[in-house]
């Protein structure tokens, strides 16, 4: 059954089955995206609850102009960004870049270099880099958000995001080598 059909049935009858169908389809994905943004599991759980309530109370505003999933994810990211802004953490997003400009000469780390790390090692690496870098890497490679969208999300231009992402990849690769040694050397 398609999302739109479930939504219109829910709007008509506020049927619990429709609620559960949509919930089962999107809850875990929303949680994953909230975790990317908020880092802590408890915060991501609370955010999922708030976002779902918000989505169901605003279903009247959704008229199917875009895909339901697109609308749901934009509500999710907007909610998380608002939350981060309230906690005054987002203003630090580029502080690191200003203080310590990126090394332009550094060799670009290929995407596959990070994607092929073992998942437990990746988890460790992400725990040991800055929150900004962690969030950018996860938005790009875990959630599959385009650079253009990330730039819009943070109200920055695309080249600033590309540069920040390049640095984040370098740092993550370096951290991986530091923690686990370079596999190429073995």
């Amino acid at each position: 059954m398609e999302d739109l059909a479930i939504i219109s049935a829910y709007k008509e009858r506020r049927d619990a089955t429709c609620f559960r169908l949509l919930y089962d389809r999107y809850a875990a994905k929303i949680y994953g995206k909230a975790l990317t943004m908020l880092k802590k599991e408890a915060s991501a759980k609370d955010a999922t609850q708030e976002i779902f309530t918000k989505i169901f109370l605003s279903l009247g505003k959704f008229h199917g102009q875009s895909k339901f999933s697109t609308w749901v994810y934009s509500v999710t990211y907007n909610y998380c960004i608002d939350l981060i802004r309230k906690e005054k953490r987002s203003r630090d997003i580029f502080a690191d870049e200003v203080e310590n400009p990126p090394d332009i000469e550094a060799e670009e780390v290929p995407d596959t270099a990070l994607m092929n790390i073992k998942v437990n090692e990746l988890r460790q690496v992400l725990r040991n880099i800055s929150e900004t870098d962690r969030r950018l890497l996860l938005l790009k490679y875990k959630d599959g958000i385009k650079i253009k969208e990330i730039a819009k999300m943070y109200d920055k231009n695309e080249s600033a995001i590309k540069m920040q992402l390049k640095r984040a990849k370098e740092k993550a690769k370096r951290k991986h080598e530091e923690l686990f040694g370079s596999e190429k050397d073995e």
């Binding site: 875990a28 994953g32 990070l114 994607m115 790390i117 073992k118 890497l137 996860l138 490679y141 875990k142």
Partner: peptide, 14 residues
């Protein structure tokens, strides 16, 4: 892709 594996594990945890 290890990022996708990570995503899968997070969703399973939820």
């Amino acid at each position: 892709n290890s990022f996708l594996l990570l995503q899968e594990q997070e969703q399973q945890f939820f």
